[in-house]
Design a protein around this nucleic acid. Sequence first.
RNA 1: UGCCCCGUUGUGUAAUGGUAGCACAGCAGACUCUGGAUCUGUUUGUCUGGGUUCGAAUCCUAGCGGGGCAGCCA
Length: 562
Amino acid sequence: MSEEIKKSSNFITEIIDEHLKTNKYQGKVHTRFPPEPNGYLHIGHAKSICLNFGLARDYNGLCNLRFDDTNPTKEDIEYVDSIKEDIKWLGFTWDEREYYASDYFDKLYEFAVQLIKKGKAYVDSSSAEEIKALRGTPTEPGKNSPYRDRPIEENLELFEKMKNGEFNEGKYVLRAKIDMASPNLNMRDPIMYRIRFAEHHRTGNKWCIYPTYDWAHGQSDSIEGITHSICTLEFENHRPLYNWFIEELGIHHSQQIEFARLNLNYTVMSKRKLLKLVEDKIVDGWDDPRMPTISGLRRRGYTPESIRNFAEGVGVAKRDNTIDVALLEFRVREDLNKKAQRVMSVLRPLKVVITNYPDGKVELMEAVNNPEDETMGTREVPFTKEIYIEHDDFMEDPPKKYFRLSPGNEVRLRYAYIIKCEEVIKDSEGNITELRCTYDPETKSGHDTSGKKVKATIHWVSAEHAVNAEVRLYDRLFSYEDPAGAKEKDFMEYLNPSSLEILNDCKLEPYLKDAKKGDKFQFERLGYFCVDTKYSTDENLVFNRTVTLRDTWAKIQKNSEQ
RNA sequence: UGCCCCGUUGUGUAAUGGUAGCACAGCAGACUCUGGAUCUGUUUGUCUGGGUUCGAAUCCUAGCGGGGCAGCCA
């Protein structure tokens, strides 16, 4: 692989390059993505997926999908299915290499017996509390368990009985015999097996002892011939243990490499916290468009490309990081700007009657489908005497830099005429309910002979032809940058009460009548929107706002408020 | 307070002993029938102190700051 076409360079590619140079793994690169099926994948996993599958792609290697299913009490087949769907959607494939740590339970059992025979593992009769008490603390060494020197034969016998279900949960555990005085807590005789009379989603009731992560993970890597086992920083202190098992067993030695997990501001990323949002019904399931899950982002309207560009763009390093959501939003705008069909939609309608336009006349105006992509062609948009415009596009008493419609002022209607506001109609409470305007026939788009220049162009929809729809506007789920980081407060206290706003009276141009679930559009001047995959029907269209357009006016307003 | 890891503009990330660059965000401008897009310009940075060196973000050292570890979770 030449320097020029290599996707990205970081400390991991440097390690791999070095291995390639020294021929440590015979020129092979074989990674794996090892999710535990106990929750849905989120944007942080997307980074790991892009990293692992991306490395395999860039180095002509392979990347396995391996479910780390060693704890049946927390795992579920629902999660397995969602994880597979999400990885595929992101655009990666594991071919037939779909593995499970539970595939290796028999082999792991054999390995454990080997270690017992070698005098490197023992069955401990201590209770969980006793084990905890003898483990010591970060500053004090632990003490040996009274069962640490049990004879090998007895260990073998007890371990087999553990496997055969002859003991209750918690009665015995299998421990590695390493060093209770190690400054690294992970080396103080870590637990390898615990007794769990739980049904496993794949092995059913075959087993009542289950391996811990530390015991299962490295050996699974080894069995699969993984060369580079990439994980997050919290496993750094586990690496000596990872290596110890592999070396004591004398099996293929994968190299564990740790990198910093991705954090995003204004959201939470731990599966535990996301699960709480789901269970407390704060959100509408794991795929709620406000969730940082892959399924949530998909429903929100994010594209796989935008997420891949994001994940690959944030880089890989070892220092803790928090990425600004603005970067994620930039990535989806960047992608959708090139691809999305443009369309006119009015979210908060204000009726406009064009008094000098003939009753009953319908003109079909030609509109460009995507100025970034000529091949997407044009469409016709009907124009009539009565139209809707965005309520925000009119101000009775406009401030200095407001360029849109106001009494006596002119604006262009996109793809149509220049109109002038002549009269404002209000209800008994003083709310503006309708505008009376006149149009200038000389100003038709593409045939303008008036020479007029206006400072603004606004979007509109013919009242007679409008399609009604519901539009859901999303804002950040939390109103505080680092909801999980506050020591004193629970993250739930930072929930943004207005993270979802539902608009029921939106008027869309007729082109959208046949929009299908998942279809993506740019509503001109407003943002990118997609048809909701969960609630939208042919009769009642529901759109999700993916992200707004960059909004210079909003910025001016915000700055003038301060 | 033991062990491990990490400190480069607001946020990320490059520079591997030789001009501190890139992206996002910010700011200013050009253009515009989307206040979109596009283009141009631009502010802000090597945690601190010593040392090695002709030369240090990079190597050494001391300090400071941040993170992780005491599940039969992963």
